[in-house]
């Protein structure tokens, strides 16, 4: 088990390393392009050459990569052109804002979808199951940008009870979080609920649940002790992977509601070709994604006695 955890973490480090190589190759191999993007299009070739020389861009590529990686590892991502300040200063507050948003969203998505999924899966084919399933398909079919439009139209245009943007211009305001969280929840809960339902429904048809029922145990006991323990292993993994999906949704939601979060920053950086900021944002995003996947893998192994004790 310990070896397995070490292996997974090693694998995660390896993936991050590979991603950093790809990223470096994509954005920094062509040093002329870097110079243009950092000091601007309307500079003379001499100015650029000087800049490249001064910033060590004339060293061999491997050396450049290693030194870049060293700086990245200690959190020094360079200076953002667009924000005219160190990347770290821009990045971390934005990441924090997104963490707040994602926490609220996950805090609703997880209990909601688990409860719905279990209720639906307990009695497969019942009216409740059908209603929940169709609702879930319906909500996952509305992309975030569309549900954002619908929700904004309803709460701002028709009812006029919520602020139309979430820029937090006058300091933190929970009301401004309502719509972004609602959009994320609407799009994401259906998927987790359906996975939970499928897992629960499968467990309910297994022979060991039949054994428990035919041993005369009370229904509640059968569900709590015999079914749920097996049924929740798969959704747990899904929930961890959902963080990866949420990150995509976050970009759309932040852009739509002008929320000053990490997703909007990433898009901003990409559109303005802010090389160092793109690198930093991508690495953070991949780190979060790979990290949650690693946790999911380890937890799956831990939860599953068939793998844990062999």
């Amino acid at each position: 088990m310990l070896l397995f955890i070490l292996k997974r973490i090693g694998f995660m480090a390896l993936t991050m390393l590979a991603v950093s190589v790809v990223l470096f190759a994509l954005l920094e191999i062509d040093k002329e392009k870097v110079a243009v993007r950092v000091i601007g299009q309307y500079t003379t070739p001499e100015q650029r050459a000087l800049w490249l020389e001064r910033n060590g861009y004339n060293r061999p590529i491997v050396e450049r990569y290693v030194s870049w990686l060293g700086h990245v590892a200690i959190g020094d991502f360079g200076r953002s052109v667009r924000y005219q300040s160190p990347v770290a200063d821009v990045l971390w507050p934005r990441v924090w804002n997104t963490v707040i948003l994602a926490t609220y969203a996950l805090g609703i998505i997880v209990p909601l979808s688990l409860v719905l999924g279990i209720l639906a899966g307990m009695r497969e084919g019942s009216k409740l199951d059908r209603a929940i399933s169709v609702t879930c398909i319906g909500t996952t079919s509305v992309p975030e940008f569309a549900s954002a439009v619908f929700i904004a139209a309803l709460f701002v245009f028709v009812l006029g009870i919520l602020p139309g943007t979430s820029s937090m211009a006058d300091g933190f305001n929970v009301l401004e979080l309502v719509m972004p969280v609602m959009v994320l929840v609407l799009y994401d809960f259906g998927y987790v609920a359906r996975m939970t339902r499928a897992s629960m429904a499968e467990v309910m048809t297994t022979q060991y649940v039949r054994t428990a029922v035919l041993a005369g145990l009370p229904y509640a006991r059968v569900i709590w002790k015999y079914a749920l323990r097996n049924a929740l292993i798969a959704p747990f993994t899904v929930i961890m992977l959902q963080v990866n999906w949420l990150l995509s949704g976050v970009i759309v939601v932040e852009v739509f509601f002008s929320y000053k979060g990490f997703g909007a920053l990433l898009l901003d950086a990409s559109l303005s070709q802010d090389v160092y900021l793109i690198e930093a944002c991508t690495l953070v995003a991949v780190f979060v994604a790979v990290g949650t996947q690693t946790i999911a893998d380890i937890a799956y192994t831990y939860l599953n006695p068939r793998i844990r004790f062999t």
Binding site: T15, V19, L266, V286
Partner: peptide, 12 residues
């Protein structure tokens, strides 16, 4: 490697 990117980040 590819799947370790959040999908939308990759597209962007």
């Amino acid at each position: 490697l590819i799947l370790s990117f959040p999908v939308l980040v990759l597209y962007i």
